[in-house]
């Protein structure tokens, strides 16, 4: 008897009066299940099944002839073997890696520099920069690509106009049409469009740093450079890791800017992995099986970044 009273007092939650079962509250587990059902159905149809199906296609022979007959013969790993024997696949992968390393390095350096610049609230131009910073985020990637194809155009382009008028160059430069500069010419618009995101994250992290740390360091006579190197940078490390992973995995799948500016050219100087998968599948000879295989290789590489990222956030929350 005494035990029952004690138990009743320990669980102070009032027990609601018993209702008929259709008015009774669902157990938490079931509620969670029902609240997630709609999302799960959509995710299964649009993400999970297509990912599985891409794997299926990559193991089968799927071309125009097979599509017409509607039968995809099993092909084993032949698509992957063909892929690994294609020099263009390796060139695309190499271009993608060069593109990504360039983009991510520049973005991280610029993001930290601009983030520090935005913190200078007493400088009025910093407030202007902060207002304009988000602008590129709003520009659709395909429009961005086309705008830059106008900027880069050899004969009529905006960049050559500006540089010729100001006397910085004396001859027009074929920015996107030159194999040496084409990859950088695609990278700059991409950086332009995606930099705001990285800057925002750095800026938010900088605002979270305790000012007292700097005061203390200044009292100890630390120079601005030493304050940056020993206080700011170590405290920014987590956010820089986040930016590195996110930007790397998204830059690996760059597509729209390539489509609008160079279409892989000149020659094959800007063939990147996503472009390779697109061209192999949706241009003659429409080798969809091989395209799916190349997309899968891309997904696996990006998946590695995703695993690192999940680990990172998981650590941060527990």
């Amino acid at each position: 008897m005494a035990e029952e009273v004690a138990a009743g007092e320990a669980g102070t939650r009032r027990v609601p009066p018993r209702r008929p079962f259709w008015k009774r509250e669902l157990p938490v587990g079931w509620l969670a299940f029902f609240m997630n059902t709609p999302s799960m159905i959509v995710l299964a149809a649009v993400l999970a099944y297509p990912i599985y199906y891409a794997g299926y296609l990559s193991l089968h022979q799927v071309g125009l002839a097979q599509m017409r007959r509607g039968v995809f013969p099993f092909y084993g790993f032949q698509n992957y073997l063909n892929l690994f024997e294609d020099p263009l696949f390796w060139l695309s992968l190499k271009n993608t890696i060069m593109f990504t390393v360039f983009v991510v390095t520049v973005e991280v350096v610029l993001a930290v520099a601009i983030g520090l610049l935005l913190m200078q609230a007493s400088v009025w131009t910093s407030r202007v920069t902060r207002f304009l910073m988000l602008l590129p985020y709003a520009v659709p990637p395909i429009a961005n690509g086309l705008i830059w194809s106008f900027i880069y155009n050899f004969k009529f382009g905006f960049l050559n106009r500006v540089l010729l008028t100001t006397g910085l160059i004396s001859e027009p430069v074929n920015w996107a049409g030159n194999a040496d500069t084409a990859l950088v010419a695609v990278a700059v618009p991409y950086i332009w469009r995606t930099l705001p995101f990285a800057v925002l994250l750095v800026y938010a992290a900088l605002q979270g740093i305790n000012r007292d740390l700097y005061e203390a360091a200044a009292v100890d006579g630390a120079s601005a450079w030493r304050r940056f190197w020993h206080i700011t940078l170590p405290l920014l490390r987590p956010i820089i890791a986040v930016i590195l992973i996110l930007r790397t995995s998204f830059a690996f799948a760059v597509f729209e800017e390539v489509l609008a500016i160079t279409q892989g050219g000149p020659g094959d100087a800007t063939w990147v992995s996503a472009w390779y998968g697109y061209k192999v599948s949706f241009a003659p000879p429409f080798n969809i099986g091989m395209g799916a295989a190349s997309a899968y290789v891309l997904a696996l590489i990006v998946g590695l970044f995703a695993i690192v990222y999940v680990r990172l956030i998981y650590q941060r929350t527990t």
């Binding site: 993400l47 297509p50 891409a54 597509f255 998946g303």
Partner: peptide, 14 residues
């Protein structure tokens, strides 16, 4: 979190 990383190009064909 992992699903956010899936590149659209992988999904295009399927």
């Amino acid at each position: 979190v992992a699903a956010r990383f899936v590149p659209i190009i992988v999904l295009m064909i399927p």
